[in-house]
Design a protein around this nucleic acid. Structure first.
Length: 832
RNA sequence: GCUCGGGUGGCGGAAUUGGUAUACGCGCACGACUUAAAAUCGUGUCCCGCAAGGGAUGCGGGUUCAAAUCCCGCCCCAAGCACCA
């Protein structure tokens, strides 16, 4: 007998698996590849977080299931070492990132190995390794060659905490996603990747992808496609030179983007964003003082301030534009509710049919001209009480004006047309007159990849007075990041720490050989992590980004799991980079992950975990307390893995007991034992259901089935060796250490994961020859009887009628109809 | 405001996709073993009712022989985006 010693057993197997390379596949020789991937961890000093650990587990059980099925499974591991997360922590403890990482990575390895994950430890990848970032830089140069990496001046987010610019995706609600500082908007010259060139392709790809809906929705939202028109407005006075604005616009015109060209007759004023580079030219002398003050005021506001102030503000510029459709003179205002980053940074305002314009017009007493009549029923109060509500309802009706679509009025040639028709006709009219054109606009903006920091791959670019911007040739890559012991901290002056390292800055132009200077910013960490799963396939390869022969076999990744907080960060960037690799003929697909699932959050007793609340679940601690097998199974058992689930200290006792219960079963296993029908039926049913659950990633119900089977085996007097081994294989993905131990004690010499040990079910046992026939009268349950499988309607009815308990429902009744569902139920429809 | 999930026992959650609602686990109660406790095993556990029976899947309606599941209208919770023209 004895007590199960999970600590000893789990340690024994964790070490043995690594030593024996149980989970190290032969990448080039594999016949049946299955690539299981979890998100690239960064080796945080705090150690393994339960959320990551959980996501890893979701991948790991699938990997083990596939391994047991005979697949060659690759479940790689590496470290996202470069980047703000590591560097910021190094700053707080006053150590260089490299030194710190040596320690934290070691800790991370130890933790992951102890947890019994089936990782391949022989192909580790590290983004801070020159052998890796050479290829990160190579990707940059390829983008550069294609005109997809450009240096341009733009309004960017500046994080005063991290002392660097950041990409739009790295700002959440106006705040830095890394350090929580309020972001500032600055006009700066930075390096951008033109992800917007791929907006449509990224959007279109979503339709075909087997990814969590929530992730696809987030990407779709972020890309924010809208269809509309660009409309040109003539400028008054005509001496404003607009040629600097957009290349293709001849002077005297300014462009707007609108989704409602059908409302052009309703335009009563015009607005420029305060950051618009023509504002000053538009402003007349009388208005100059006021406009300058307004621009200054809004510039000092962060995005967060702007979001918080509900009240709209603005100033008249003194200038006018001409409405192309009716030659009306329209006043031009500056207002910060118009954003420079969207459309053209200018709008035509239609207060009658746009909520924001309506608010603004009300405040500044601008005219409101109605040009769309909403369908009549929209304006009829829904019930009498609403009329009684009086004033409130009036506001409601007013509100229904703006957004409503309907039929055009006061619009000359559009009168009587429905919104869709009117849009089309107006766009055509504008195009004919060369005053506008149909246009698709995206919210997505180019990816700003410059970071004024130390801990990242240097941007491989050289500035030469003669040759201009030159990218570093492939043969000279990598551009090594100098090992700085001092002064690697960010200065906050808009320049990276490398700008102070003379030996780094000074170089020669690769084209003309003259003295030149290196770019001193480093690249965004999200570029490092955008391609790591390609590198796993051949981490040592010095010739190419990865071994394509191996890639052909293993890519795209079969199964990927991670948090949805990366939906518009890593997961979108990596799709973009994959599209680039495809255009370079490196890969032959757009979507790198055949199946991606966003795992839900683990809550503690229904609440979000946080250090300040002191309710953080530490995997290492629970691994000690209840064992990793029990911990991992519990996390999966909590509920569907895409939803949030609540962890509780009592709940975990359940899986811990389950482990012990299985351990105790071993004493019932007898070579001579013959299983009863009940056990055999349950075994085969369990094989079937657990296999199906795995295919649909329904780990919670798979565990429930296995617990059920455990209960059946507990009730049996003895268990045959055959059934026992099959049962162990079924539990092995969830309880790998226990299963291995029991497997070994049952006399097996090699690992349970070493061969195709997943059992097959026998339909003969799954299909029982009797079933419970449900008896309903008028759809109400009246009981059930045991009936032979395959019984037909007539026989079933006869059998039911013979049964005493149903007589009172059926005697002397006229049966109008009988519904018979084979092998399930019979329902008699009678008069009441 | 828009987009996307979700609302089922005391709790986490099942439900063959329209066919016995509440599987599995936690908790609780009782019993067995024990000098005792822990562990373990067994029994019970949606509500009303002695029973026959009736009622329950956020609320209100509909479709159907039959609805947690499909349709319409509302309420609530969570996530993401958010002055996106």
């Amino acid at each position: 007998m004895g007590q199960y010693n999970y600590k000893k057993t789990e340690k024994k197997w964790a070490e043995k698996w690594v030593r024996d390379k149980t989970f190290t596949p032969d990448l080039s020789g594999a016949k049946n590849p299955y690539y299981a991937l979890f998100m690239f961890p960064y080796p945080s000093a705090e150690g393994l977080h339960i959320g990551n650990f959980y996501a890893f587990t979701c991948v790991d059980v699938m990997a083990k299931y596939k391994k047991l099925q005979g697949f060659d499974v690759f479940e790689p591991i590496g470290f996202d070492a470069f980047g703000l997360h590591s560097e910021n922590y190094a700053l707080t403890i006053g150590e260089t990132p490299r030194k710190m990482l040596r320690r934290t990575e070691e800790n991370f390895r130890k933790q992951l190995k102890m947890a019994g994950l089936g990782c391949d430890w022989t192909r580790e990848v590290d983004t801070a390794n020159p052998n890796y970032y050479k290829w990160t830089q190579w990707i940059f140069t390829k983008l550069f060659e294609r005109g997809l990496a450009v240096r341009k001046e733009s309004l960017v987010h500046w994080c005063p905490g991290c002392k660097t610019v950041l990409a739009d995706e790295q700002i959440e609600n106006g705040v830095c996603e890394r350090c929580g500082s309020i972001s500032e908007k600055k006009k700066m010259k930075q390096w951008f990747f033109k992800i917007t060139d791929y907006a449509q392709r990224i959007l279109d790809g979503l339709n075909e992808m087997d990814w969590s809906e929530i992730t696809k929705a987030a990407q779709k939202n972020w890309i924010g496609r809208s269809e509309g028109a660009i409309i040109k407005f003539e400028v008054q006075p005509p001496n404003i030179d607009t040629s600097a604005q957009f290349g293709e616009v001849e002077p005297q015109y300014i462009e707007v983007f609108t989704t409602r060209p059908d409302t052009l007759f309703g335009v009563t004023y015009f607005v420029l964003s305060p950051e618009h580079n023509l504002v000053r030219q538009f402003t007349t002398d009388e208005q100059r003082e006021e406009v300058e003050k307004y621009i200054k005021d809004t510039a000092s506001k962060s995005d967060l301030d702007r979001m918080e102030s509900k009240e709209k503000t603005g100033v008249f510029t003194g200038a006018y534009v001409i409405n192309p459709v009716n030659n009306e003179k329209i006043p031009v205002w500056v207002a910060d509710y118009v954003l420079m980053g969207y459309g053209t940074g200018a709008i035509m305002a239609v207060p009658a049919h746009d909520e924001r314009d309506w608010e603004f017009a009300k405040k500044y007493d601008l005219p409101i001209k109605k040009v769309v009549e909403p369908p009549a029923l929209l304006r009829i109060p829904r019930n009498i009480e609403d009329i009684a509500a009086g004033a409130k309802e009036e506001i409601k009706i007013e509100a229904e004006y703006w957004s409503a679509e309907g039929v055009n009025i006061n619009s000359e040639f559009l009168n009587g047309l429905a919104t869709d028709e009117a849009k089309k006709k107006m766009t055509e009219w504008l195009k004919e007159k060369n005053l506008g054109r149909a246009n698709i606009n995206y919210k997505l903006r180019d990816w700003c990849i410059s970071r004024q920091r130390y801990w990242g791959p240097p941007i491989p670019v050289i500035y030469c007075e003669k040759c201009g911007i030159v990218s570093v040739p492939e043969k000279d890559l990598p551009v090594l990041l100098p090992d700085l012991e001092k002064e690697w901290e960010p200065a906050g002056d808009g320049k990276g720490p490398l700008s102070k390292v003379d030996s780094f800055v000074k170089t020669e132009c690769p084209k003309c050989g003259k003295p030149a200077k290196r770019e001193t910013d480093v690249m965004d960490n999200f570029l490092d992590s955008a391609w790591y799963y390609y590198r796993y396939l051949s981490p040592e390869n010095g010739e190419e980004i990865f071994d394509k022969k191996i890639g052909d076999k293993w890519l795209p990744v079969d199964f990927y799991v991670g948090g949805n907080e990366h939906a518009v960060l890593h997961l979108m960037y990596t799709r973009f980079i994959t599209m680039l690799l495809r255009d370079l003929d490196v890969v032959d697909f757009d979507n790198p992950f055949k199946r991606f699932r966003a795992n839900g959050m683990i809550l503690k007793d229904g609440k979000k975990m946080s250090k300040s609340k002191g309710n953080v679940v530490n995997p290492e601690e629970y691994g000690e307390k209840v064992g990793y097998d029990a911990l991992k199974s519990y996390l999966l058992f909590l509920g569907p893995f895409e939803e949030n689930r609540s962890f509780s200290d009592e709940g975990i006792l359940g899986t811990m007991r389950w482990v012990d219960k299985i351990y105790r079963l071993k004493d019932k296993v007898k070579e001579s034992a013959k299983d009863g029908n009940k056990v055999l039926r349950n075994l085969h049913k369990t094989i079937k259901r657990v296999s199906e659950d795995f295919e649909g990633q329904k780990y919670n119900t798979a565990i429930a089935r296995l617990m059920e089977m455990t209960n059946v085996l507990s009730a049996a007097d003895e268990i045959s060796r055959d059934t026992w081994l099959k049962f162990l294989a079924l539990t092995a993905p969830f309880l790998p250490a226990l299963a291995e131990e029991m497997w070994e004690r049952a006399g097996n010499k090699s690992s349970i994961f070493g061969h195709k040990n997943w059992p097959e079910y026998d339909l003969g046992f799954v299909r029982e020859d009797e079933f419970e026939l449900v008896v309903q009268v008028n759809g109400k349950l009246r009981g059930s009887i045991t009936a032979p499988r395959g019984i037909n309607e007539k026989e079933a009815e006869k059998k039911v009628r013979a049964e005493e308990k149903f007589k009172k429902y059926l005697e002397n009744r006229i049966i109008k109809k009988t519904i018979f569902v084979k092998n399930r139920l019979i329902n008699f429809v009678i008069d009441k």
